[in-house]
Design a protein around this nucleic acid. Structure first.
Lengths: 189, 189
DNA sequence: GTCTATATGGGGATAGAC
DNA sequence: GTCTATCCCCATATAGAC
């Protein structure tokens, strides 16, 4: 049952949301792009909220799985952080989850907003744990985890604003340099 | 001439754009909130594009002036970077400029998009110059400038996603700690 | 479950008088 | 420069048949 109407609708919505955002995507757009009929859409998803929740939920699950995979490899802790920073990313497209943060349709919908919140809460916590494993104190690790995730999210913003994907790479390189330099210092101490 | 119709329209649009984004704000919303009449709006701004360009342009000017003020004080270079990072910010509101980066009405409008791009290009360049002044090599300074600005932008994303303004503060604290630690190391060398 | 038809409200603007 | 009236289109559904 991988491609019944419901699944096709969810997947199409995920793609359109990633490309244009939730607010800018109408149920009609999803119908047209998925090839599913109107009666079908409103049968499976009575309101746009329902469709949005399903699509955003699926996207968050996928993104979280991918991030956790990188952060939980058997490499040394610092290398996992560097790997997370350096993941290949479509900079000009923006983060499929982070972008939702300035999408009015998402911010106005408590259920969907909560799902986006959970994504970052889990991601921040995973990064924090890796940093603790690397030897950092709890509070320092917490702050630094926020910094690491923020650099990626902000890198997307810079790339989209300037139209230059290199802006994200530069932000990540700068962060990686700071982390690996600090590490050397810590080892020397 | 501080409060003729044109000025009031621009200022009202700036506020509404900051609060709800460009896509989610209609010319009608601006009319109503400004108290100006419909004929008046379409006289001064024939299309939404014109109104958006005026409002976003004004917001970018203000934001740039404020940032430059911080970055050009007579304090030591590193302190200016730390001051930029630590500026008081309304974390849950998001960056008035950065948020536009995922606003479809902005990304679809080349003129407005360009103005947003200029904001970040200038800001990044100003930060880079301060870092060079602090003794960093040109390419290292360029990367690190991206990192600094990205941390702020990403901090906003985290704060809005989780609903917690502390997320921005934590990201900034983490970055400040890394920068001041590295500095100590550099001085010791 | 899926179809076609229909409905309401707002977005973005135009027309023409004052 | 500003006013009121009007227009068309699309977003988001609802209705009821098959």
């Amino acid at each position: 049952m991988a491609d019944d109407a419901r699944t096709r609708l969810t997947r199409t919505a995920q793609e359109l949301f990633a490309a244009r955002g939730v607010s800018a995507t109408s149920p009609r757009d999803v119908l047209t792009a998925s090839g599913v009929g109107q009666g079908s859409l409103y049968h499976h998803f009575p309101t746009k909220h329902d469709l949005t929740l399903a699509a955003v939920g699926a996207t968050v699950d996928e993104a979280l799985t991918s991030a956790m995979h990188t952060l939980a490899s058997d490499a040394p802790a610092l290398e996992r952080i560097v790997a997370y920073l350096g993941k290949p990313r479509d900079a000009l497209a923006g983060c499929r989850v982070g972008r939702l943060t300035s999408d009015q349709a998402v911010m106005d919908d408590d259920g969907v907003h909560a799902v986006v919140g959970i994504y970052f809460t889990r991601l921040l916590d995973a990064v924090r744990r890796v940093l603790v494993e690397d030897g950092l104190a709890d509070d320092v690790a917490r702050d630094r985890a926020h910094t690491v995730v923020a650099v990626v999210q902000g890198g997307y913003v810079l790339a989209r604003a300037t139209g230059d994907p290199e802006a994200l790479r530069a932000a990540v390189r700068g962060m990686t340099a700071l982390l690996t330099t600090t590490d050397r210092e810590a080892s020397a101490a």
